[in-house]
Design a protein around this nucleic acid. Structure first.
Length: 480
RNA sequence: GGCCUUAUCGUCUAACGGUUUAGGACGUGACCCUCUCAAGGUCGAAAUACGGGUUCGAUUCCCGUUAAGGCUACCA
C-alpha cells in the first residue's frame, strides 16, 4: 500500500479538454493502471482571470467519455481532498509562511509597473529577463510593517545565488540547470492565490503523488520545484516529461491549425477507441508491429521506458484510418447505438437496420457516413441522375430489366446466391455480359453507382421492394 | 537574446554497437481481386540533418555545427 503508484492529471479549467491534455491524462491513467495504482484528477484553478464557466464539468465529461476515468477527484474523495486548488488556499498560505520563516522566501512589494520597467531595461540591454531581487533584502520587520500598513505584496521564493541543480527525468535522463538561470519565482500572488509552482509541489506532496507525468513544457520549471521540495524537506517524486504534440508545421499543437478540442473530434465522429489508440501511439509504441490497441491492452503493455523523447505531429490521416479499423471491429449492435441518434428515419425493423449496418460497415470511415450511404435501404430512391443513366443504359436495357424483374419475382428462395444465379442465367440467355444487367440494376434499386455487393443488397432489400423499384425504373428509362 | 530539450522515410515509429541491402504503419504509385465503391492482397518509391571523434565496427556512445520546439509572467 505504501508503495502504491499515485499519479495525477491536473488541468486548469480554461475551456475544453485539449487533445494533448487527453494524451497526458491517458499516459498517467495507463501508468497507474499498469501498476495497479491510483489515477487522480486535480483541478488547477489558481488563475482566477482565466477561469471558464463549465470547464471543469466539460473536462470531466470528456475524460469519462474517453474511458480515462479517475479514482480520486472532486466527486470522489480518496482522503486527500479537496481536489480543487481554489479550495486549498489556506494550505498554500501556510506552507508559504513556513518558507518565509525558514528564510527560503520573502515578501516582495514591487509593483507590476516597476517589474515592467525592469524587464524593459533588461530587454533593451539584451540581458535575460528576470526579477532583480530588489525586495530580497527587505528585512522581515520592515516587510511586516509595510504589510500592516496595507501595502500589496507577493511572496517570492529565494533561489540560491550560486551553484547548479541536477535532476533525473525518467524519459530524458539527467538534466542540469544553473541556479543563476532561475528566477525568484512568485509563490503567492497579491490576490492570495498561489502560483502553479507552489501549488503543484504542495499538492503533489500532500496527495502522495509518486510520479509526475506531464508535458515537456514543464521541464524548465522543474528546478524551482525541486528547490521547493528541498526547502520543505519533502521527497521529490519521479519526474517524467512527455514529448509535445505538434502541429503539421512542428510547432506546439494549437488551435488555428485545426481542431485541438477532444470534443471536436468526438463531434466529427471519431470513436473513443480510435482516439485513445491514436494518441497512445503518439510518443509510445509497444515495440513490435501491432497497431490496433484497445484500452485494456494499452494498460497491460504501457511503460514509460517505451516513451520517446521527440515531439510527435498529430497526423489526422492515420487517425482516420484507425477510426475505420475500429469501426470494422465493432459489432453491428454497437455501431447502431452510435448511428441511431443521428438517423433520420424511424427504425421499424431493428434486425433489418442491423443488417444494413453489417452490409455497409466496412465502407464507413465515420458512423455518420452511414446516413448518407443508406437512404435507399429505407425508402425508394428519389431520383436517378441523367448522366449516370446515359452511361449505363442502352436502348435495350429497359426490356432486359423488365425480364429481370420477372425472374426475381418468380424466385422461390430469395437469397443472394439464387439472385446472382438468376441474373447470370438471364444474361447468358440474352447473350450479354452480366455487367450489362448489374449496373443498371444497381442504379434502379439504389439510385447510385456505388454501394455494397449487389446481390447481398438485393437480398436484404427483399423481393417486393426490388421488383417494385425495378419496374418503376423501367417506366422511367422508357422515356430516355 | 539566454537556458533547456529534441533530431531515422512526407507523418507516427522499430533498431537499446555487429543478426541491416535500416523493419512496420499511415499516406502515396502500380498491380491483383471484382458488379461499382470500399475492404483485402502483392509489389514499388521514400529516411539515419551535417562535421568531427571513440571503436575492429556506429542509426545507436561523445563533441561541435545546424535546425526545430519548449521555457523565459503576480498563466498554467
Amino acid at each position: 500500500m505504501e508503495n502504491q503508484v499515485r499519479v495525477r492529471f491536473a488541468p486548469s479549467p480554461t475551456g475544453y479538454l485539449h487533445i494533448g491534455g487527453l494524451r497526458t491524462a491517458l499516459y498517467n491513467y495507463l501508468f497507474a493502471k499498469h501498476f495497479g495504482g491510483k489515477f487522480i484528477l486535480r483541478i488547477e484553478d489558481t488563475d482566477q482571470s482565466r477561469k471558464v464557466e463549465g470547464a471543469v464539468e466539460n473536462v470531466i465529461k470528456t475524460l469519462k467519455w474517453a474511458g480515462v476515468d479517475y479514482d480520486e477527484g472532486l466527486d470522489r474523495d480518496g482522503g486527500y481532498g479537496p481536489y480543487v486548488q481554489s479550495q486549498r488556499l489556506e494550505l498554500y498560505r501556510k506552507y508559504a509562511q513556513e518558507l518565509i520563516s525558514k528564510d527560503k522566501a520573502y515578501y516582495c512589494f514591487c509593483t507590476s509597473e516597476r517589474l515592467q520597467e525592469v524587464r524593459q531595461k533588461q530587454l533593451t540591454a539584451k540581458l535575460s529577463t528576470s526579477y532583480d531581487r530588489l525586495c530580497r533584502n527587505v528585512s522581515r520587520e520592515e516587510a511586516e510593517r509595510r504589510i500592516a500598513a496595507g501595502e500589496q505584496c507577493v511572496i517570492r521564493m529565494k533561489i540560491p545565488l550560486e551553484g547548479e541543480l541536477s535532476f533525473d527525468d525518467v524519459i530524458r535522463g539527467k538534466v542540469t540547470i544553473s541556479h543563476k538561470m532561475i528566477d525568484d519565482q512568485v509563490l503567492i500572488k497579491s490576490d492570495g492565490f498561489p502560483t502553479y509552482h507552489l501549488a503543484v509541489v504542495v499538492d503533489d506532496h500532500l496527495m502522495g503523488i509518486t510520479h509526475v507525468i506531464r508535458g515537456e513544457e514543464w521541464l524548465s520549471s522543474v528546478p524551482k520545484h525541486i528547490l521547493l521540495y528541498n526547502y520543505f524537506r519533502w521527497q521529490v517524486p519521479m519526474l517524467a516529461h512527455l514529448p509535445l504534440l505538434l502541429n503539421p508545421d512542428k510547432s506546439k499543437l494549437s488551435k488555428r491549425q485545426g481542431d485541438v478540442a477532444v470534443e471536436d473530434y468526438r463531434a466529427k465522429g471519431y470513436l473513443k477507441e480510435a482516439i485513445v489508440n491514436f494518441i497512445a501511439f503518439l510518443g509510445w509504441n509497444p515495440g513490435d508491429e501491432r497497431e490496433i490497441f484497445f484500452m485494456e491492452q494499452l494498460v497491460q503493455e504501457f511503460t514509460l521506458d517505451r516513451v520517446g523523447k521527440s515531439g510527435a505531429v498529430f497526423n489526422i490521416e492515420k487517425l482516420k484510418w484507425l477510426n475505420q479499423q475500429h469501426i470494422k471491429l465493432k459489432s453491428n449492435e454497437e455501431l447502431a447505438q452510435l448511428i441511431k441518434p443521428h438517423f433520420q428515419f424511424a427504425i421499424s425493423d431493428e434486425s433489418y437496420f442491423l443488417k444494413v449496418i453489417g452490409l455497409l460497415k466496412e465502407r464507413l470511415s465515420f458512423p455518420n457516413d452511414f446516413i448518407e450511404m443508406s437512404g435507399y435501404f429505407f425508402r425508394d430512391p428519389e431520383f436517378i441522375e441523367e448522366a449516370e443513366m446515359r452511361k449505363y443504359f442502352e436502348p435495350e436495357t429497359h426490356s432486359q430489366l423488365k425480364l429481370l424483374a420477372d425472374r426475381f419475382e418468380a424466385l422461390l428462395e430469395f437469397s443472394h446466391t439464387s439472385i446472382e444465379a438468376a441474373l447470370r442465367q438471364l444474361a447468358e440467355e440474352l447473350q450479354i455480359k452480366p455487367t450489362k444487367l448489374i449496373h443498371p440494376t444497381r442504379l434502379a434499386l439504389s439510385g447510385r453507382t456505388i454501394g455494397p455487393g449487389l446481390f447481398e443488397m438485393i437480398e436484404l432489400l427483399g423481393k417486393e421492394t426490388v421488383v417494385r423499384r425495378l419496374r418503376r425504373a423501367v417506366e422511367k428509362f422508357r422515356a430516355v
